[in-house]
Write a protein that binds this DNA or RNA. Structure first.
Lengths: 212, 212
DNA sequence: TTCATGATACCACTTTGTTGGTATGGGGTA
DNA sequence: TACCCCATACCAACAAAGTGGTATCATGAA
């Protein structure tokens, strides 16, 4: 029996998946939590074979939760469950060390197969995203938006967050306790790194790429 | 036994919800489809008491599907199931004549109650969104994001589209074959209508509310 | 017809954003 | 140590956005 910890902020989804598996399936959703921060304590309480986790969650997102687990030294295979099939998410998931990636748009059969493979520490990727991974690995420059985001420093992301919220340079300076000159320097560097030519484009890019 | 037709593009979710209900619950997910266009033929084949439908779906969205059913003369109570709690969706759902609105973020108990109420043609609204509806019905300008969007003219939405794409006023003027003065007038009117104080906020608002 | 609205256009002015530099101190790495 | 990156800071100048007016014309509703 494979014991699964399900991490998803949608209760209905969690309970649904749990009741989907019968003992004969060899899979049991033994724990459910809606908060990624609770994963460590659950892993300490109970033997868990696979973590099935949503990427987009309110408190801490799936990728953040993965990093947290890695830092704390936990080594449980993680199967990411999500509705996003953007390369952005896939890449960040793989970089974070997930064992597999499956879409909410999958069948029970596919999920079962995925959980089984991941529990054996084999990789699983949902067929729908295999193509994208394949294309990405061919390394065409076209898909290098991701790198642009990766080049941003934490402070720069913070600045972007403020811009998106509508703060102007002066307000940001006051909020972050730095000079307006500094804010402007950051803005300039950000725009250069992202290759955008004005604030509007910066905001659009940031929201679409999920920087904020 | 209440017979439910579930319409959701995420197979896993559908199968999950189906296996969540036991005969003793008095609710049965008797049919599942991932395509809203198939609803009419299913309703003709089988007696359905409640349609449980996701709003965001690829082929035809939940709201479109509702309109389709109304046009074809079907009168089955519809419970909208979604992860969006923006007033935009709620309003469009209610206008479309749905009997209830529940979040994916709900518990099995809540879903059960919702299905039962809707099957009796009572309204059901998830607690989380009740406040929003309440505020909205009071018609305070403050909470009526929806009205803000509704007040925009087509031309203004077009301008917003250009701004979001990163065009500046001069570029827009050239693109739309109008004077730069006119573009600025539009920008001003848009910002006033949406209650934002700069372009960054305008872009954020527009992308989040789905104006573009 | 009268009225309201939307799209268009112009002017003058202020504020903010954008670009071009330069520079210093701290932290980490080759 | 020398080097690079990051956050910080300043100056000057130009471009763009934003503010406060006013105004015309067409359209559709009252």
């Amino acid at each position: 029996m494979i014991k699964v910890l399900l991490v998803d902020d949608h209760q209905l989804f969690g309970e649904g998946v749990r009741s989907m598996f019968k003992p004969t399936d060899g899979i049991e959703i033994s724990r459910i939590t809606t908060n990624g921060h609770q994963i460590p304590s659950i892993l300490e309480e109970e033997k868990i074979d696979v973590i099935l986790m949503d990427i987009s969650m309110p408190n801490i997102d799936g990728i953040g939760a993965m990093q947290l687990l890695k830092q704390k030294g936990f080594d449980v295979p993680i199967l990411m469950l999500t509705m996003h099939q953007d390369m952005k998410y896939i890449k960040r998931t793989l970089e974070g060390g997930a064992q597999g990636y499956i879409l909410k748009d999958a069948s029970k059969q596919e999920l079962t197969e995925a959980i089984q493979k991941v529990s054996r520490r084999e990789n699983y990727f949902h067929p729908k995203i295999n193509n994208q991974i394949f294309n990405f690995l061919r390394g065409d420059k076209g898909s290098s938006d991701v790198d642009l985001v990766g080049q941003l420093s934490d402070r720069e992301k913070e600045i972007i967050g403020c811009i998106v919220k509508g703060l102007n340079s002066k307000a940001m300076a006051d909020t972050l306790f730095i000079s307006e000159h500094t804010v402007k320097t950051h803005r300039r560097n950000i725009m250069h790194k992202l290759g955008v030519k004005n604030t509007a484009e910066l905001v659009t890019f940031s929201l679409e790429k999920g920087i904020v």
